[in-house]
Write a protein that binds this DNA or RNA. Structure first.
Lengths: 210, 210
DNA sequence: TTAATAATCACCCAAACTTCGGTATAATTT
DNA sequence: AAATTATACCGAAGTTTGGGTGATTATTAA
């Protein structure tokens, strides 16, 4: 019988030392093989069709195109390729940008032999490797802000607005008059300092009010 | 010197056998102590001020109030209490509802001795314990749907709509006429089968189009 | 390489909806 | 008692939406 095919891994990392060290670690495994190691996204993307990686280990800070943009492009060109961000930063905004760009994991550069390989294994198993801190960041991102300036009723109405309901629909759903709904919405706008439904939704999402 | 104070744990689980088994496991640890074990949320909430739990292990399916609603109320009354959902289901919608309700972890009932205790340890460390499958669900929830029916331009415009921009602002930002923006938006509405900005945002978020 | 299709841009009009600026009362909470 | 919350109404001004029409520029397929 033949050995199971090794998963094809591409490494994008501008620091040559780290790149080579990661390559050694990945290649040391029976389950993975580095099919490309690049110092920037541009080169990696140019070789994408030849490399056909199942997994990409991606640095964020890179000369030229950064890792977020690179992730976006790679995922756009090859949807089945899974990207794991490997970075020194655990900065909140960067994490979410990377996830939105299509990353499926987020580990730090301090990752040792075991951590790196188990992240790869985790991806293959259909999981999403990430550090405790990142996991918590991601989970907390779902939590509603307990310091909302809105009253219970206003929050309910904002919720309905975010579901795309009109004044009339809101008033019907809550058994209040259209004018009352209007008043509540005016108060919401004034508290959030916005002046349209969409702006209110944007602010509500950003500040986790709903 | 005195021993470090044990973390106060409350268990809410209607199956008496599981409840007692979990209690034994938690109490076996030097770091945790079960201060209350209930078969429903109502009783647990009534005793909340006396129990003052740092951590709640919460079942989802419960007689009376379900675990999602219970989580909401507990988090509302005691914001510093961390809730870990313990359930047989890994159903996508339930997971996200639980997270939105304020849960910080999500493990399955099949959790053994080690898994349960390490989930508790993880919470104390400020992490967010969850299974591979859940982690992946959560991460995938950030990913944009590659099968969007919208063109690139339409997606850009939908993005601006979701940021609360008006027709005028969108046209200025993209250097196109207001009428053109309007045309794009009409096309977006027709593709998404909606007829207002807020509805489009709701659909876009739900279907991960932006 | 042409033909067809998709994407982007632009304008008009009328109807509908939303927003802003007021005013006001009852119920609840502090 | 005072403050907050939830309820309700009016009218004017502004924005959005629906239904058309049509042109120019990619992009794709035959």
């Amino acid at each position: 019988m033949s050995l199971p095919t090794k998963k094809r891994v591409v490494i994008i990392e501008d620091d040559q030392e780290i790149r080579e060290s990661f390559s050694l670690i990945v290649n040391s495994s029976q389950r993975f093989a580095v099919v490309g190691a690049y110092g920037n996204c541009e080169d990696a993307i140019a070789s994408l069709n030849r490399d056909k990686p199942e997994i990409v280990l991606m640095d964020i800070e890179l000369p030229g195109m950064n890792g977020i943009k690179g992730t976006q492009i790679i995922r756009d060109k090859s949807n089945s390729t899974e990207v794991i961000m490997v970075t020194v930063y655990e900065d909140s905004d960067l994490v979410f940008e990377a996830l939105k760009a299509g990353a499926s994991g987020y580990i730090t550069k301090s990752a040792n032999y075991t951590e790196l390989l188990s992240a790869l294994e985790e991806i293959v198993r259909g999981g999403a490797p990430m550090s405790s801190r990142i996991a918590r960041m991601v989970i907390d991102n779902y939590h509603i802000n307990p310091n909302s300036p809105l009253t219970k009723r206003e929050t309910t109405i904002l919720q309905l607005i975010s579901e795309g309901k009109t004044y009339t629909q809101i008033s019907e759903e809550l058994f209040i008059s259209k004018e009352t709904a209007k008043t509540h919405i005016k108060n919401i706008y004034s508290k959030l300092q916005v002046n349209s439904k969409s702006e209110a939704i944007a602010k509500a999402n950003h500040d986790k009010l709903i």
